[in-house]
């Protein structure tokens, strides 16, 4: 499912030719540097991962390939799953921390700029 409601194309494909579960290329459609670079960083933070990198094969094709190679202690799919879990965990903590600081109202507040009423 993507922004155009296109359900036919899978969001994620695994392109791997070898039988070695330790390495795989994940091809993600309708994504770009935004997700790929953040995910690459989180996967690299896993010490069982030997290599993780991403590329956008062609600039007019909305697709990224993420390559993962792991040691024998884990598999590429597991590493990807852990990377996603870690990224979600990180984001959720940022939300908690940000909302906490916002509620403290410990900042300089200035009426300025907009005269329109913001009803949050």
């Amino acid at each position: 499912m993507n922004i155009d409601g296109n359900e036919n194309e899978a969001k994620l494909k695994i392109l791997s030719s070898s039988s070695d579960e330790g390495c795989a290329t994940f091809s993600i459609s309708e994504e770009d540097h935004t997700l790929a670079n953040a995910l690459r960083y989180m996967i690299m933070k896993n010490p069982k991962v030997e290599y993780c990198g991403y590329s956008i094969p062609h600039p007019t094709e909305a697709k990224v390939n993420i390559r993962v190679q792991t040691s024998e202690e884990t598999t590429a799919v597991e590493a990807m799953n852990k990377g996603l879990d870690d990224l979600i965990e990180l984001c959720e903590h940022i939300l908690v921390e940000y909302n906490e600081k916002l509620d403290l109202k410990n900042y300089k507040y200035d009426e300025g700029v907009f005269d329109t009423e913001n009803k949050a």
Partner: peptide, 27 residues
């Protein structure tokens, strides 16, 4: 990880995210 919200106006916000990587901040 730390968040500091230093300024908020009706149209603008300035905040610091401390302790994250550029790949996350850029996302």
């Amino acid at each position: 990880f730390k968040v500091v919200i230093s300024e908020l106006t009706k149209g603008n916000i300035e905040f610091d995210l401390i302790g994250i990587d550029a790949s996350i901040a850029n996302a």
